[in-house]
Nucleic acid binder design. Sequence first.
DNA 1: AAATCAGGGTTGTATGATAACACGACAAGA
DNA 2: TCTTGTCGTGTTATCATACAACCCTGATTT
Lengths: 268, 268
Amino acid sequence: MTLKLDKVNRGPHLSTLVASSISREIAQGRLKPGDQLPTEQALATTFGVSRNVVREAIARLRSEGRIWSQQGRGAFVVESTNPTVLTIDYEALQRADSFRNLFELRGILEVQAAALAAKRRSETDLAAMGDALAGMRAAPYGSVAWLRSDLEFHRTVAEATRNSYMGQFLVFVSERVRESILAAGNQQKSDDMARITLGEHERILTAIRAGDAEGAQAAMRDHLAGAALRVGLHDGEAAAEPASPAQEVPSPVRHSRLRKAVRGRARG
Amino acid sequence: MTLKLDKVNRGPHLSTLVASSISREIAQGRLKPGDQLPTEQALATTFGVSRNVVREAIARLRSEGRIWSQQGRGAFVVESTNPTVLTIDYEALQRADSFRNLFELRGILEVQAAALAAKRRSETDLAAMGDALAGMRAAPYGSVAWLRSDLEFHRTVAEATRNSYMGQFLVFVSERVRESILAAGNQQKSDDMARITLGEHERILTAIRAGDAEGAQAAMRDHLAGAALRVGLHDGEAAAEPASPAQEVPSPVRHSRLRKAVRGRARG
DNA sequence: AAATCAGGGTTGTATGATAACACGACAAGA
DNA sequence: TCTTGTCGTGTTATCATACAACCCTGATTT
C-alpha cells in the first residue's frame, strides 16, 4: 500500500524560473555589476510572462541583495559580491577553542542584551520572563521542558532589547552553542545545580525589572560564568574578563596543530 | 534646499513592510509552524495594500524558506528548521530603525572587541593597526583608499581579539552597515572630519597598545558615537543608551492602513 | 547662463479577471 | 457500505490594464 508517490513535485513558480534565469545571467557574467537590467516590460515579453511575474522575480533578487532598483530609473546589478549570509561550520565547533570562542561571543551579546533590556523592557516582557522562570521551576533540571523554558527566558531578554538584530544574532549563536553542548552530552545534573541556575536567572530578572543595567549585566555575567563551569569550560572569564596577559603570537597564521588540543574538550 | 540629508530613510517598498510584518508575526510566535496564513485577499485588506504587494511579500518569504505555499490550498508557515545560516535582509536595512538597530549591534561588538583586543593583542596586531592608520592618514577623507584603511583597522582590532567568531560576525555586520551607508550616500566630507576621525582611531590604538581595556572601550564608544553623527544618526547613544520606552504592540494583526504611514516617505 | 517646465520612460501600486488546483459535499452506482 | 463521479466553493497563480510616483533629459523661459 505504501506507494512511493513522492511529493507532488509541482513545477516551481514562473517567478522562480525567471529569477533563476536572471540569476544565471549575473553569475555567468552576461550581466556585470552595475549593469542595468532590461525594463520589466521587456523582461516580461522576452520571458513570455506577465510583468507581474517579473516583478515577483525581481523582488526576490532584490531581497537577496543581488540587484537593486529605484523607481523611475530601473534595476541594476548590485556592485558588491560580499557574502550576504553568515554560516557557522558545525564541525569546527567540535574543537574546544572554537567552542570557547563562540561561547565568549555569546556571552558578550547576552551581557549587553541584558543591559539594554533593563532599560527598554516593557511590562509584557517582564511577564514573559516571569513565565519562563516559572516554567523552569516547574520542570526537572535538564529536562526538555526545562531547556525550553531556559531558552525562552533568554529569548525574551533579547526581545526586550527592542533590537531585532540582537535577537536574531543571539538566538543564532545560542542555538549553535546549545547544539554543541548537547552533542557533547556531558552534563552532570543535580538538584543543587537546578537551584543555583534558577537563582542566577532570578537575579537577572530582578535587575531587569528594576531597570538596573549594570546589575543586569553583572547578573548575566555571573550566570554565564556559572554556565561555563557547568559545561566544563574552566574560567568563567569567557564572558567578560580576559585572562592571560596577552601572550604573543607573532606570526599571523599559526593555528596548525590545534587538533590534539581538542580531543579532550568537554569532560571535566 | 540642499540639505538633502534626510536620514537613511530610504523608502522601503510596501512589499518589504508587509514581509517584515509577517516575518515578525512568525518570529514572535503568533504564527506557529504549520499554521496557515490568511488568504492573500485577507492580508491585502488588513494591510491596506493590493494583493499584488502581498504576493511579492509572500514570494520573498518563500524564497527565504520561511513559508511554503501551494496553489489552491494556501500558504503555510514552514516547520521550524533550525537555520544554519544567518542572513540579513538587505531591503529591511533601508528602514531607518532597522539600520539603527544594526548599528547598535555593531557598536556592541566593536566596543567589546576593543576591550578584548587591548588584553590580547600581539605586536604584529599593533603593527597592522598602525599601518592601517597610516593608510588613512595618507588618503583623502572619504576616498576609496581611506575607507579601505578604515575597514582594515577595525578588522585588525577584531582579529586581535583572538576570537575568530568575533571577527567573522563583526566583519559581517560592519559590511552590511557600510553598504547601507554608501547606498544612502549622504555624507558630508570635510577636513575637520578627517582630523577628528583620525584622532578617534588614534585614541583607540593608544589604549589597545597600552593594554587598557576600559580605555579602549571608551575610545571605541566615542568613535562610534562620532560615526553615528557623521552618518546622520542622531544620538550617539546608538551604541549604548536606549531610547524609547518600549511601546506595546499587543494584538496580532493590526497593521491596517500602512498606506498612509508610507505616503510621505523619503523627501522632506 | 540659470532656472523652470514639459514630456517620455520606468518602476511602484491598484484593480479586475481568468486559469489551475484543492477540498469537501453530495448523489449515483456497485 | 463502499466507491466513484461530479459539482461548487475557496485559494493560489497568472494575466492584463491603468494610474501614480519618480527620474532623466531637453526645450523653454527668465
